[in-house]
């Protein structure tokens, strides 16, 4: 196997993008001490709308402000890139039901296990946390099986 088989779209943009993500998470940590996983904000925003004690635990209420500013940064960063690259927005062709069902299960699972691709993937592994490393191996394997199963059954995009 050569590089073109493994990476038919090239490797530079993947590496540069990955390093930019790492730079963001690193800068956040060095300057503010905050750990920049992205899934917690999905629970934290409910503290604005729900009276449920779960959503008012300290860790959510105290972090909701910075998590929302961080999330706003993600939107701004993507908007800046769209502007700078001068390209047209790429609109996903994934059907709405696939986004809805997958999103619901992924959102539930990420919060149940306290981490997603950035929380366990980047921050957890960078902390050399063994449970996070395990979590990453598990969700990668399960996601690969799921996606290949859907593809072989011809379901969705």
């Amino acid at each position: 196997m050569d590089l073109n088989t493994l990476f038919p779209n090239g490797i530079a943009h993947y590496l540069v993008g990955g390093l930019l993500i790492g730079l963001g998470v690193s800068l956040l940590y060095a300057l503010t001490g905050l750990v920049g996983g992205m899934s917690t904000v999905y629970s934290a925003v409910w503290s604005f709308f729900s009276k449920l004690p779960f959503f008012h635990q300290d860790s959510l209420v105290r972090s909701r402000q910075w998590r929302l500013v961080f999330a706003l940064g993600l939107i701004l960063g993507a908007a800046i890139w769209l502007r700078l690259s001068g390209s047209e927005p790429v609109i996903t062709q994934i059907p709405w039901w696939q986004l809805a069902i997958g999103g619901f299960i992924a959102g539930f699972g990420a919060r149940f296990g306290n981490g997603c691709t950035s929380g366990h993937g980047i921050c957890g592994m960078a902390s050399l946390n063994l449970i996070s490393v395990l979590a990453v191996i598990v969700f990668l394997v399960v996601a690969i099986i799921t996606a290949q199963l859907f593809a072989s059954l011809g379901i969705g995009v």
Partner: peptide, 26 residues
Amino acid sequence: METLKRTLIGAILFGIGWGICGVCPG
């Protein structure tokens, strides 16, 4: 961090959802 058990159950579910839609929280 969650307990090992909850983390693994969460990771399995997250993997299923992510594998269906290809979208993660970020």
